[in-house]
Each structure stands twice: as structure tokens, then as C-alpha cells.
Design a protein around this nucleic acid. Structure first.
Length: 890
RNA sequence: GGGGGCUUAGCUCAGUUGGUUAGAGCACCUGCCUUACAAGCAGGGGGUCACAGGUUCGAAUCCCGUAGCCCCCACCA
């Protein structure tokens, strides 16, 4: 026999087989133009991040696709890597500095950058080791990092190219200012939150008049930067005030009352204070009316020096209260109302965004967005599920220019040099030494760095040695790009997915991938997203330690429908563990009859039994279904198919039937035949399960003798052929016959169980069968005996009902179990008549359908035929039951 | 405010172009330690498919409306 531990000890096998595959370079894809590549990009996790269930799910799916395609013979490159994650990483180190009582500014840019680099070396990328514990088959030889020299070069190349084309420009605009991180952030890093705020009502005095104009605002402190009051031109209340000036309290500036359509008379007071430097709408109005822009806020969100005492230097929220206090003192305050409003917050620091006028670098997006949108419109680019297409298109069709400069130190520094002697700006692939306009050597580089996404949007290109230095680089890119499928979270459809599409189209004139699979968001049982702050997450490392990686992968994938959400609980992982255990035990059953490296006959050379043919047929069908489901990105369906095949078909029927031939006294030839079939099918089952559960399948497959019908055996199951219909014999007819035997067995079991017969009580089974089934049933008596606890089986077309019997009725057969004196006849009578009623009820429904002339006229032929056959079958069953009822009563 | 989605068994969810008696896993009930597995085996109960209309020979599936929940986008002071 083949030795096998009595339970699956994942810790003894996982690392062993992972290292084995890496050592054999099975996860590495060299450029090889004789083989078809399959490329899948790992969404690079932040260097700072730790493994969480979101990775557990999304990346398990990527590994599933990778392993499946690898087994189908493709040269699979699952490209791993990390993202330097500008803001997130800098925040982390800044927190450390704070604890040490220092600050990056005190440290200086260079030192701070060094500190970050060494921090990254030490702690960054821990997540990649965590990926290994889950068995992810990445091509580690191509590991990339967004700040690698080569990838940084790509960033610079793209910047320079876009700049030279005029697609990158510097502009003074209102940006989303994060007062905590002291940087601008892009629109896509802002999240709106509904907040219970206050709407304040106060008045501004009109210059040269006793009149006052009423104002409503949620942000009184911005009045210090007001440069107009706007009303609707049609508003009768204010018409006479148009063109007059307001004397702005505290600053005493005179500001005009203007008319603008933006103002809705019915809202608030109908008059709006205009602060062009601190509100997006006011900014637009300011531009329309040529108003001055007065920036009254510092980078930290305190009132700037151009504001009067007592506000100067106060935090914006303190100043808000102070303004109200002072307005009250001036007798200009009316009231405040509680007011629900949405306020933009920084995704990173969670602070309230301060719209602030500042000079930043932008990418013109419209031109880039158009082809990206067209690709989705024409379905050349497909989303799974496809409902994301609308979202994607809406964003692209309404795209805003992308603010790419960040006032941070961690990241790719903007390759722009300003001249101190002239307004000239210089850029290029190498650092310039002189201004390209005037030749002055007095130049300085822009202080800012680029948005992190400005490097990640090149992920389909830059890790593959783009831009190419030589022929080899060029080949690499051409081989792997375009990639095959992107698996990622819907949250970053704009931030990342759409931008990669734009970049690849712009620089390679083709899509980076044609399929995007959006995996589900992982939530707790209450449907709340897993989050650190809530502490409702499940740590995959804990679950792996408890159940093993295979159980985690299986559970995660089987819970995940396409898109949407997956509600997850720690206990769910018990299912995965149970399944792994089941596979392990099935192996123990088979292995105890095998010798290591035992020679087995080919399936093609054997005369197989009905149940064996059925089992092989099930393997064949399962292979097709699994493959089809994976092609359709229906990963949970694929997993379910494997699960039911192994548990329901292989274990519950295959192994149980085989026990007859494996029993101590069985004929050696039968035993060998049965073993050959079991090993053959189990090998196939392990192959089907391998992309989901790499470790248990590898351990068992390596121990199991090679089966000649699977052809030459490679070094690992991860490069063994994925089963297809062509590889497996077709036994469709035999399999259908075996289903009748299963019905007979299940029928007997059901009757026995319902009648409360002890499993120990053996009964003869008398089976009357239709002529067409007689031979098959006759040949199946061993199985019926064993699996239905019959001590004797008598079957044939004219088998008669023995005296007092229990009855099981099915399509084409009636089984009688003589129980003279063993059971309560009344009980059986009730059971049978209940069954009769149940079938009759269904029959009524079917009959009324067939009596309906419209149905008969309009239903398609196959539906009609089906319905008629069904009626015939039901009628037959009812009459059989009635016959037996009568016999029982006699 | 705009867009999208969801509502099916006690729980979590499948149900692909409308067509057999609506499925799975877990949970539950009954009986079994049958020498791979009690993390198991066998059997069983449980659903007017959110509600109200409509289209159709036929609707969980298509259309309209209602209610509840969720997500995304959005500059109403």
C-alpha cells in the first residue's frame, strides 16, 4: 500500500511543493515565440499593505486562471509586483517620525527619501511572501516595483512625451486640497460624505444705503475671501440691487452684486456669496465675471495672513465659529438651520477637502479618453460582469483633466526644471543643466512628485521592459502585451483600469487586455465591507494557519459570484477544510490498495463495468463543464462542478461501487481493473481541482502511480494536461443505463428508511423491469445487493409482487421488498397514498396544459413532446402505485 | 439629483436566450461508528421566487408600478 498520513497536515506539504515548483521554474514564462503566452497582470498591492481577504479572493481567482491556462499548455506569466503608493507610504513613515518627535521638513528631502527607501526594503513587500503562502503561481523572475529604475524610466518617458505633445500642462486651478497631507489630490481620491451641517443666515450691508442683502452659507469663514454676491437676474427682490456694491464686513472691501444664472432664487435667500478661490462653483462664476481670486487659506487650512484679526492664523473650523460670533456682534446675523449636506473628504487622510486655488500639473484627458471609450462601446473591451461598461463609459465621456502633481516627497519627482532667469521650462529624458529657452544654468527642478497612478497606469507596459532599449526588450513587450485578462476590484475602475486602457492605446495603439473581470467585494455577514477601522475583517493568515491554503482558496472562490458582494464568515472556511479532508480520505481509500509506482493497465484495454463507465463519463462531462465555466468567468460554478464531481460522483458512487471489486476475496483481475479506473479518474479529478487547490492535489498526485492513459507524466501536476473531452472515452449510453440502477438503489433506500427498517435488516429485492432494461438490471445485482442492503436480487419482466411488500416505483421499474410481518402495513399504505396524491397533483397540472388547445398549437414541438412523455411516465407511476395499494389491502 | 444593482428554503446564494415537479452548500429532523472520511454515510422536512399589475399557450426569468436594502457618480450656496 501507499503510505499516507491519516489526516491532511497542510503545513508539511505547502511550502515543500511551492518551493519545488519555483525551483523547477514552473511559474516562470520565458519569452518563447513557439508557445502561446497567457499574461495576467497582478494588480500591484501597495508596498505597505498586508494580506487581507480581498487579496485572498481576487488573487486566488487570478491564480485559478493562471494555473488552468498553464495546464492547458500556455506559457503563463502572472506578473507580480508592488506599487510605491506615494501617499500611503509617506503617511506611514511620517507617523513613525512623529513618534520620534521629528518631521520630514526638519529632516530634509534627501534624508527623508532615504528613510523611506530603507523602510521599503525592510517592511515593504511583506505581502509578496504572504502571497506565497496562498500558493500563488506568479512569475517571480519578473517581479516589478513601480519605482524600479526601468519602470521609473517609463514614467519619465511618458511624461516627456505627453509634455512635448502638449497633453501635459501646468495650470492654476481650484484643486482638492488635503490640509493634513498638504497636497493636492485628484478628483478620484475624494469621497463625498453626507454630513449633518449647519446653514447660516446673515446679511451684508449695501454700500451707500441702509439696505442689507441676506445670505445663506454653510461655510461662513470663506466670506473673508468673497469677491461678489450673486443673485438671479430674474429675481424681483434683488433686481434693484444689481450693480450696487456690498461693504464686506471685517475686510471692508467693496464687492459687486452681480447676476448669474447659476443662482436659484428659491434656494436659501436667493443671494449667494461668491468665493472664487475656495469653491468650485464660485470659481466658475469668478471666471465668468472676471472677479478677483483671493486665497485666504494656508496649506494647513488656517486663515492666511491676508485675513484680518481675529481670524488670521485660526484653523478654518475655528474661524467659522468666530465669523458667526463677530457677525452676531455686528447685528448682521439672523439664524442657523440644521442642514444635511454632502462634503468632500480625502480618501487618505479622511479630512475635509479644502478647495484651494493652486498651480498644478495636469494631463489633458479628452483626447486619451475617446479611444478608450470607443473600445468598450464596440465591445472590443469587455467587462465581466458587463454592467460596469456603463459606469466606465460615463466616466470617460465626462472626463476631467487629471491633476498629476502631488506635494509629496515619496514618488517620481516631476521631471521639469524652471529657469530663474526666464519663464522657460525644461524637460527631457536626462536631467538638464541649462534652460532650453535662454541657456541659463540657473535652473531648479519642480519640488513635487507625480501621482502614484501615473506609474501604475503603465503596468501593462513598463514591467515588460518598455520603452525598449534593444531588440530583446521589444520582443518581451510584444510577447506579453496585450495581456489576456485583468482581474481586479471595481473600486479602481477609473483610478487604474480606465487609465491603463488609455495608456496602452496611446503608446502601443492597442488594448492592454480585452477582458476585465471584476471580483466581488468581501463583506461581513451584515454586508459591511471588511475594514481595518471596523475590525470586522478575517485575517487570511489566521485561516491559512488553521485550515491550510487550499481550504481558504476553495472557500473564497466558491463563495464568490461574478461581481457583487460576498458575505463571509470565519466558519465558512470549515467547508473548504471539509472538502480538502474528503479528498484526502478518498486518496487513503484508493492508496491502501496500491503499491508505489504500481503498473496499471490502460483504460482502453479493459472491459469496464457499467458503474465504471458512468464514472468516467461523469469525469468527461465535468471536464467540459469546468472548462466552459472558466471560459465564461463563472468561477464559483466551476468550483461547484469540481466539488460535486469529487464528492457526489467519485466518493459516494465510484468508491462505494469499487469496494466490491477491492474486497479481500475479489478476483485479482477485477481488483486491478477497478484500481486502474479509480486511479485514472482520481488523477483527472485532481487535475480539475488543482487550479483551485494546488497543494493537496500536488501531494496526492505525486504519491499516486502514473496512469498510462494520461500519457507521459510531467514533474508536477501544475503542468499536467487539464482534462478535456478528447482525452476521455465517451460512455454516454452506458452512463444513462447506470442512472436507472442508481434510481433503483435510491428508491429502495428511500423506502426502507421511511419505513424505519434497520440498515442491518437485509431483504430480498424483487424487481419488475421493462424489457428494455431487463439485461442491465440483471447485470447490476451485485451493486443493488451491496448498496441497497438486499440479500438477494430477483429481476425480470414478469417478476410478480410477493405477498406483503414495500414498493418503490420509478421510470421503467417497480421494486418489491417482501416484509411479511416486519412492518406496519398501515404505514406503508399511508406512504403510498401520499405518494399517489403527490404525483396526481403534478399530473393534473400537466394534463391541463395538454388539454389547452393554445398550448398544443403554440408550444414548440420539443416542449410538447417532453410534456407528453412526462404525462405518460407519471400516469404509469400512478397506476403502479394504485396497483400496489390494492395488493397491499388485499 | 443622476445611474446601476439586489429582494428565491432558517442562513448564504445559484437559476445563462421564458419551457420537465425552482436548485446547491450550511443549518434542521430521522436512522446508521457499513474496515477512506462521524469533518462521515443513508434518508427526510422546508420556498404562493418582495408586493401589485401586464405581455404570453407558458413568467423566478420579459415590461410597468410600489416598497425595502445596497453601490457608484454628482459643485446647489
Amino acid at each position: 500500500m501507499i503510505e499516507l498520513d491519516s489526516t491532511y497536515e497542510h503545513k508539511s506539504y505547502e511550502k515543500k511543493w511551492y518551493d519545488y515548483c519555483v525551483d523547477h521554474k514552473l511559474f516562470h514564462a520565458p519569452v518563447d515565440n513557439t508557445r502561446k503566452p497567457f499574461t495576467i497582470l497582478m494588480p500591484p498591492p501597495n508596498v505597505t499593505s498586508q494580506l487581507h481577504m480581498g487579496h485572498g479572493l481576487g488573487y486566488s481567482i487570478q491564480d485559478l486562471f493562471s494555473r488552468w491556462q498553464r495546464m492547458k499548455g500556455l506559457n503563463v506569466c502572472w506578473l507580480p509586483g508592488t506599487d510605491h503608493a506615494g501617499i500611503a507610504t509617506q503617511m506611514m513613515v511620517e507617523k513613525d517620525l512623529e513618534k520620534e518627535g521629528t518631521h520630514r521638513r526638519a529632516m530634509g528631502r534627501e534624508k527623508f527619501f532615504e528613510r523611506l527607501t530603507s523602510w521599503k526594503e525592510k517592511y515593504g513587500g511583506m505581502i509578496l511572501d504572504q502571497f506565497k503562502t496562498l500558493g500563488f503561481s506568479c512569475d517571480w523572475e519578473r517581479l516589478a516595483y513601480t519605482m524600479d529604475p526601468k519602470l521609473s524610466e517609463a514614467v519619465r518617458h511618458v511624461f516627456v512625451e505627453l509634455y512635448n505633445e502638449g497633453l501635459i500642462y501646468r495650470g492654476e486651478r481650484l484643486v482638492n486640497w488635503d490640509t493634513v497631507l498638504q497636497t493636492a489630490i485628484s478628483d478620484d481620491e475624494v469621497e463625498s460624505k453626507e454630513i449633518q451641517g449647519i446653514l447660516y443666515f446673515y446679511r451684508y450691508p449695501i454700500d451707500g444705503s441702509d439696505e442689507q442683502i441676506p445670505i445663506a452659507t454653510t461655510r461662513p469663514e470663506t466670506m473673508l475671501g468673497d469677491t461678489a454676491v450673486a443673485v438671479n437676474a430674474e429675481d424681483e427682490r434683488f433686481k434693484h440691487l444689481l450693480g450696487k456694491m456690498v461693504r464686506l464686513p471685517f475686510t471692508n472691501r467693496l464687492i459687486p452684486i452681480i447676476a448669474d444664472d447659476y443662482v436659484k432664487s428659491e434656494f436659501g435667500t436667493g443671494a449667494v456669496k461668491i468665493t472664487p478661490a475656495h469653491d468650485p462653483n464660485d470659481f466658475e462664476i469668478g471666471k465668468r465675471h472676471n472677479l478677483p481670486f483671493i486665497n485666504i487659506m494656508t496649506v494647513t487650512g488656517t486663515m492666511a495672513d491676508n485675513t484680518p484679526a481675529p481670524f488670521k492664523g485660526q484653523d478654518r473650523f475655528v474661524a467659522r465659529k468666530e465669523v458667526i460670533k463677530q457677525m452676531k456682534a455686528l447685528g448682521l446675523f439672523d439664524e442657523e438651520k440644521s442642514y444635511k449636506t454632502t462634503v468632500p473628504h480625502s480618501e487618505r487622510s479622511k479630512t475635509v477637502i479644502e478647495p484651494r486655488l493652486s498651480l498644478q500639473w495636469y494631463v489633458k484627458m479628452q483626447e486619451l479618453a475617446k479611444p478608450a471609450a470607443d473600445a468598450a462601446r464596440s465591445d472590443e473591451l469587455q467587462f465581466h460582469p458587463d454592467l460596469w461598461k456603463k459606469t466606465y463609459l460615463y466616466w470617460l465621456d465626462n472626463i476631467q483633466d487629471w491633476c498629476i502633481s502631488r506635494q509629496l516627497w515619496w514618488g517620481h519627482r516631476i521631471p521639469i526644471w524652471y529657469c530663474n532667469a526666464c519663464p522657460g521650462v525644461t524637460t527631457g529624458m536626462t536631467d538638464p543643466t541649462a534652460c532650453q529657452e535662454c541657456g541659463s544654468k540657473d535652473i531648479r527642478q519642480d519640488e513635487d512628485v507625480l501621482d502614484t497612478w501615473f506609474s501604475s497606469w503603465l503596468w501593462p507596459l513598463s514591467p515588460f521592459n518598455w520603452p525598449a532599449d534593444d531588440k530583446k526588450d521589444e520582443e518581451t513587450l510584444e510577447y506579453f502585451n496585450p495581456t489576456d485578462v485583468l482581474v481586479t476590484a471595481p473600486e479602481i475602475i477609473f483610478l487604474w483600469v480606465a487609465r491603463m486602457v488609455m495608456a496602452n492605446l496611446k503608446f502601443k495603439n492597442r488594448l492592454p487586455f480585452k477582458h476585465v473581470y471584476f471580483n466581488a467585494t468581501v463583506c461581513d455577514k451584515q454586508g459591511r465591507k471588511f475594514s481595518k477601522t471596523l475590525g470586522n475583517g478575517i485575517d487570511p493568515l489566521d485561516v491559512i494557519a488553521k485550515h491550510g491554503a487550499d481550504a481558504v482558496r476553495f472557500t473564497a472562490i466558491s463563495l464568490a459570484p461574478l461581481g457583487g458582494r460576498v458575505k463571509m464568515d470565519v466558519d465558512d472556511f470549515d467547508n473548504g477544510a471539509r472538502f480538502v479532508n474528503k479528498i484526502w480520505n478518498a486518496a487513503r481509500m484508493v492508496f491502501q490498495h496500491l503499491e508505489p509506482n504500481q503498473q496499471l493497465p490502460r483504460i482502453q484495454d479493459l472491459t469496464l463495468t457499467l458503474s465504471e463507465k458512468w464514472l468516467i463519463q461523469r469525469l468527461r462531462e465535468t471536464s467540459v463543464k469546468v472548462d466552459t465555466h472558466l471560459v465564461d468567468y463563472r468561477v464559483n460554478d466551476a468550483v461547484e462542478e469540481v466539488y460535486h464531481f469529487i464528492w457526489g460522483a467519485f466518493c459516494d458512487w465510484g468508491l462505494e461501487c469499487a469496494k466490491i471489486d477491492l474486497a479481500a476475496g475479489a478476483k485479482p483481475a477485477d481488483k486491478l481493473r477497478a484500481l486502474s479506473v479509480l486511479v485514472y479518474v482520481f488523477d483527472g479529478a485532481l487535475r480539475l481541482a488543482h487550479p483551485i487547490m494546488p497543494f493537496v492535489t500536488e501531494e496526492l498526485w505525486q504519491k499516486m502511480p502514473a496512469h498510462p492513459s494520461w500519457g507521459p507524466r510531467p514533474v508536477s501536476i501544475c503542468v499536467a494536461a487539464f482534462p478535456t473531452a478528447e482525452m476521455i472515452p465517451d460512455f454516454a449510453t452506458d452512463a444513462a443505463q447506470w442512472k436507472t440502477i442508481q434510481d433503483i438503489i435510491s428508491g429502495i433506500r428511500s423506502v426502507r428508511s421511511q419505513m424505519g427498517l434497520s440498515p442491518k435488516q437485509e431483504l430480498p429485492a424483487h424487481i419488475r423491469v421493462d424489457a428494455s432494461l431487463a439485461a442491465v438490471v440483471a447485470s447490476a445485482s451485485d451493486w443493488i445487493q451491496r448498496l441497497a442492503k438486499a440479500d438477494k436480487v430477483i429481476s425480470g419482466v414478469d417478476v410478480k409482487r410477493p405477498g406483503q411488500s414495500l414498493t418503490a416505483v420509478g421510470q421503467g421499474f417497480e421494486v418489491y421488498l417482501p416484509v411479511e410481518g416486519l412492518i406496519d402495513v398501515e404505514k406503508e399504505r399511508i406512504r403510498l397514498s401520499t405518494e399517489e396524491q403527490r404525483i396526481k397533483k403534478i399530473l393534473v397540472g400537466i394534463a391541463s396544459k395538454l388539454d389547452n388547445q393554445s398550448f398544443v398549437d403554440r408550444a414548440p414541438e420539443d416542449v410538447l413532446e417532453q410534456t407528453r412523455a412526462q404525462r405518460a411516465n407519471m400516469e404509469e407511476q400512478v397506476s403502479a402505485i394504485i396497483r400496489n395499494l390494492k395488493a397491499l389491502e388485499a
